[in-house]
Design a protein around this nucleic acid. Structure first.
Length: 393
DNA sequence: TATCCACCGGAAGATGGGGTAT
DNA sequence: ATACCCCATCTTCCGGTGGATA
């Protein structure tokens, strides 16, 4: 796919001006629909800039609601605007640093301490960090993105020790401002009460974008990233309306715009139309599924394939038992030892969380209670096609 | 109303892989 | 060589679960 992209660029660049702007990682100067959040977050950090205690903060909201964008926008703006403030900003994504140890490892590195990525006692890294932090005499604004992943995997000991730190530090000394970003709205309920009471963050809720906000976001990306008059206004409104109806996820809306631009260029068109956008929705769904499956371990793939095969055979709502049986046959074909039922049950849950299939509980009385697969993200035939393209049968 | 089906899901421990320090 | 540390993934064990059934 990458190879084709290069060729395409050589002979046809009628639509896309700057591909980077069509990615969700690009953070524009202005964030449409999130100006008040930018303002609120900025104000919450101002005390630290003035060398005064500042509240901890948590961003709560579904994916694609602008949490990361607001956080990054504000810290880059603040560090440019107040370059000599006694504040240091660190952004960490907990999908990579998903244990307390790894976060501490990252913090050690940020403060110039070289430690091995594993092998040391956690407490030693913590003490390293504490000493270095005190030595700088600067406030630390620590943004932990996707912090719910960290807590789910490793508990809340990191949040506990970092928020407790402020109490132990001298009254007039610089402290830590913890900013947690969570995709799960009930994140705070999962914390230990003791942790919650010393963390006790100011909550900022991020709601799904509405159609007009998505429209503004898309228009901004189009103006910056696409050539002039290379899109129909109707096409952009269509994306905004449909994404608002299904999720309000700006990341998805931007993805669709990017895909529509690529499809239009590939077809040699000079503008993005509503027709192209409709195709782009389908391509984005499929692209996402393929990427997800590629990142799946073997047994996850086999479980998904087992469910797909059953659905393909018009088996309605297969339960864990049937899926496990089918999965065991697949493991024979691939000469691997099958995992236990307990594990496969867990894998089904994980596939559900990744959005590849959807699971429902079935209370079947004398036939027992079990999880039941309601359906796949794609049609079973499409899913099966993806598997065969990957060499599974 | 007690029982029982067929699986649920938490807890704990095993396994095997990475590492440091002495 | 030995003793310790971190970590993801899986197994083992086991007390639930809720409606159909006897």
């Amino acid at each position: 796919m990458e190879g084709y992209a290069d060729v395409r660029c050589d002979y046809q660049r009628r639509i896309i001006r700057d591909r980077r702007i069509l990615r969700d990682s690009y953070i524009p100067k202005e964030l449409p629909g999130r100006q008040s959040e930018v303002e609120k977050f900025t104000n919450l950090l101002l005390p630290a800039i003035n060398n005064e205690p500042s509240l901890n903060i948590v961003f709560l909201g579904k994916p694609g609601t602008g949490k990361t964008a607001v956080a990054k926008r504000v810290i880059t703006d603040l560090s440019e605007k107040f370059p000599s403030a006694p504040v240091r900003y660190i952004y960490l994504n907990c999908s990579r640093s998903n244990t307390a140890y790894r976060v501490m490892y990252a913090l050690n590195r940020e403060y110039g301490i070289l430690v091995p990525p594993s092998g040391y006692p956690y407490d030693e890294l913590y003490n390293n960090f504490l000493a270095a932090f005190k030595h700088t005499r600067q406030w630390l604004v620590l943004i932990l993105d996707e912090v719910d992943l960290l807590v789910r995997r490793d508990g809340d000991r990191l949040i506990y020790s970092l928020s407790r730190l402020n109490d132990e530090i001298g009254y007039k000394d610089p402290g830590i401002v913890l900013v947690g970003i969570s995709n799960t709205p009930n994140f705070l309920e999962k914390l230990d009460p003791r942790t919650l009471s010393s963390f006790s963050p100011e909550r900022m809720y991020f709601y799904p974008y509405r159609a007009h906000q998505l429209h503004d976001i898309l228009l901004q990306r189009a103006k910056e990233g696409l050539h002039e008059s290379s899109w129909d206004d109707g096409a952009i409104s269509f994306i905004a309306a449909r994404v608002a109806a299904e999720s309000g996820d700006a990341r998805r809306a931007i993805d669709v715009l990017r895909m529509a631009a690529e499809l239009a260029e590939r077809d040699g068109l000079d503008r993005i139309t509503t027709e192209i956008v409709k195709r782009a929705f389908k391509s984005v769904d499929e692209e996402e599924v393929i990427i997800t499956i590629r990142s799946l371990p073997l047994h996850h793939r086999l479980v998904l394939l087992a469910a797909t095969k059953l659905l393909l055979r018009n088996e309605e709502r297969p339960g864990t038992g049937k899926i496990y049986y089918q999965y065991k046959r697949l493991t024979r074909d691939y000469y691997v030892r099958p995992l236990t039922l307990r594990r496969v049950s867990g894998i089904l849950r994980e596939l559900d969380e990744q959005g590849l299939l959807s699971i429902r509980m079935s209370y079947g009385g004398s036939r027992g209670n079990t999880k039941v697969v309601d359906g796949l993200v794609l049609e079973p035939a499409e899913m099966y096609q993806i598997f065969t393209n990957m060499g599974f049968t």
